[in-house]
Simulated scan of single mutants.
Amino acid sequence: MTEPAADSRKLRQQIANLIAASIRDGRWATGERLPSERDLADDHRVSRPTIREAMIILEARGLVQARHGAGVYVTDAPRPEVSAPQLEVSAFELVEARRLVEGDACALAAAVMTDAQLDELTVILHDMAEEHDFGALADLADRRFHVAIAKASRNGVLVAMVENLWDLRYQPTRRDLLERAGRMRAQPLVNDHQEILDALKARDPTAARGAMREHLGRVIENLMAVAEADALQDARARIQARRSEVARRADV
């Protein structure tokens, strides 16, 4: 059950489309739990990581929702499918744009969000704390948290912008860099989000904007650390290659 790296993105999109078609054809009703990851992998003859990636795509489309400890369920409010342009942007540019857009969305949400929306964020944060790693379900909870804040702003343009920025995250190279940056964070992901939630609960737009920008600013710092580590590794490899060449020449 191997999948060539060059075809992995196309494959997970295909699997997501097949599962989406089954949902729309009524194979699973709204609120019904999807089969287990293992069963779906066997049904579609793909690996379990491919199924996890397909679930992320389906949640981004609004067709399913992951519930901690309970599996993945069909939702009742799928978003219209719109093909986003495949922009060539770096992971740094992506997070920088998120810091600008989501900072202001968070400030606006702090001024107008309801108690029910705050309760929803609390539940999502609990899911994130339970996962406390950078696996598929934790990633879904992270996205749900940020999109829920955008929705609480009651500005449809901001919601679309935040969702599109998150969709750009799933390009393989950017995703790999962001996951590596995530492993370098000094404090658990849930701590950053708790600070954001506290500012929202205080109904303080300035504090909410600051907490969101500080959170994403730390992501940028971690990306810079990853880039620095990669540059050092490349430099060491070049020096070692040069040393080997010099040694070979010295033996002539």
Results as ranks from 00 to 15, higher is better:
R185P: 00
I57Q: 12
P4Y: 04
L100P: 00
E88F: 01
E3Q: 11
R154I: 00
D42S: 11
R52Y: 06
H193W: 03
A237D: 13
S90W: 06
I196N: 07
A109Y: 04
Q14C: 01
Q65S: 12
D251N: 07
A5N: 08
E96H: 10
E228C: 04
L137G: 02
A211E: 09
G71N: 09
E131C: 09
L178D: 08
A105I: 02
A181K: 11
E195H: 09
R175K: 11
L108Q: 14
R45Y: 00
Q65R: 14
R248L: 11
P85L: 03
R236A: 13
D127G: 15
D251E: 14
R169I: 02
A225L: 14
S153W: 05
A231Q: 14
I124E: 05
R24D: 04
E179G: 10
P49K: 08
N17C: 01
L94E: 06
M55E: 02
E96A: 15
M113V: 01
A84Q: 12
R209M: 09
M113K: 03
L223R: 14
R79L: 15
V159E: 15
P35Y: 04
E131G: 07
R67Y: 03
E59C: 04
N17T: 06
A208T: 05
M212A: 14
A241I: 01
A6R: 14
W166E: 12
I15Y: 04
L11K: 12
P80N: 09
E221P: 00
Q187E: 13
A20V: 05
R143G: 04
F145L: 10
W166G: 04
R183C: 01
E131A: 15
P172V: 08
A21C: 02
P205E: 08
L140I: 08
G156P: 00
S90E: 06
R143K: 10
H44L: 06
D127V: 01
A231G: 03
G103A: 06
V226I: 15
V46K: 10
A136F: 06
V157L: 13
Q171A: 13
H126A: 12
E195C: 07
L140C: 10
V162M: 04
R213M: 13
A181L: 05
A29V: 02
L100T: 06
E195D: 14
H193R: 15
D251K: 15
T50G: 03
G103Q: 09
D42Y: 02
A5S: 12
G62S: 07
T122V: 03
D115G: 13
D39R: 14
D198E: 11
R79I: 01
D204V: 00
G210Y: 02
E3A: 02
G31S: 07
Y170C: 01
I56R: 10
Q117L: 02
R183N: 09
T122R: 14
V112T: 15
H126K: 11
G71V: 08
W166C: 07
P35S: 08
E221I: 00
D119C: 03
G103T: 04
A186V: 02
G71F: 03
D198K: 13
A41F: 03
A229H: 09
L232S: 07
P49W: 04
T2A: 04
S36M: 05
R238I: 06
Q233M: 05
Q14S: 09
R175M: 07
R175H: 11
S83A: 13
V112Q: 10
R98A: 05
Q240S: 12
L216I: 02
V162T: 14
H68I: 02
